[in-house]
Nucleic acid binder design. Structure first.
Lengths: 180, 180
DNA sequence: GTCTATAATCAGATAGAC
DNA sequence: GTCTATCTGATTATAGAC
């Protein structure tokens, strides 16, 4: 970016790549563009990563594993506090916002990742966690609207503090669910 | 598709293109692939459309204009029945499902269309329509969760009739909003 | 209206020098 | 660890024959 960071080229590549992916999506961001902004050549990128797909996957993996981890834990818990699980989900969405922005713009990292399949899977697991495995369509819709709507509430962060938005969005999600 | 439809090549191109776009996204679908499945050559496509972008835009335009039209109307109405507006929104999402699927997979048609910007705009207009222009964050979050969550409820259509899902999702959305 | 043939471009990826 | 140089292949798009 500014020429002379001897140390941390790898970190710089990941940082620049993530920013460009978030702004433009994966397919519309070329390795050339990443290399230019980092200040190295395309070939240098291949010293650190064997392919574009693996670079993208490396950036995206923690997001998936954090969210999967939350769902795993909630699925195996004795009893679940809906508001708490949804709150932790919201926090993870905030924490991984750049990666999620990238995947919203371009949900398919050629072969490796299918974001729209992920979100469907997440929402299906939320049904089980929030209203139980064999719930009626009526109750499952409440779970999907709660979790899916909560995720959309991130767009409000530009209009208020994260804490305000978090609390407001959780109130709305819990109303959709029909708890307290 | 099956060789000898003399008539309606244009319709066939649009039909095949839409299906492939929905399955793979815009950027991951080449004109070659479309031409192959239609049973013509790539060059023939250029007789009907000046570019790939214009083909994609033509397919996508009715979806945007229908939804914008609904929001226009609701914004100018004297008083709005939230459940009815949300219901009509749901119906448009169902009606335009293939186009929306395509845009979820690949939200950027280079320069022409930015789907993630559309959804943000739609959700912001829903805030105005459902809870008023200068509402608190708390109430705006209810609007976003209701409209955003409703959109996600489409994934339940595989598990029940459209009518069932529609009714259940509207119940949940209205609960999130805090009406009736 | 559809074809063949090809241009022009740009992508991801590799080999090997330094 | 980064470079130059190059390869290979795919893509959009065009020109002109039939």
């Amino acid at each position: 970016m500014s020429g002379t960071d001897r140390t941390g080229t790898r970190e710089m590549i990941e940082q620049v790549a993530l920013r460009l992916f978030a702004e433009q999506g994966f397919s519309h961001t070329s390795l050339q563009q990443i290399a230019d902004e980092v200040g190295v050549t395309k070939a240098a990128l291949y010293y650190y990563y064997p392919s574009k797909g693996e670079l993208a996957q490396k950036l995206v993996a923690p997001t998936k594993s954090d969210i999967d981890g939350l769902l795993d834990e909630a699925e195996h818990a004795e009893d679940v506090d809906s508001r708490e699980v949804l709150g932790r989900f919201f926090d993870l969405l905030v924490q991984h916002a750049p990666v999620l922005a990238a995947m919203v713009r371009d949900g398919t990292i050629l072969g490796h990742v299918d974001f729209s399949a992920w979100t469907i899977e997440w929402l299906q697991r939320f049904q089980t966690i929030l209203v139980g495995q064999d719930a009626t369509i009526e109750r499952r819709a409440r779970a999907v609207v709660a979790a899916g709507g909560l995720a959309r509430a991130l767009i409000l962060i530009q209009d208020g503090s994260i804490e305000e938005v978090r609390s407001a969005a959780l109130d709305a999600a819990c109303s959709a669910l029909g708890v307290e």
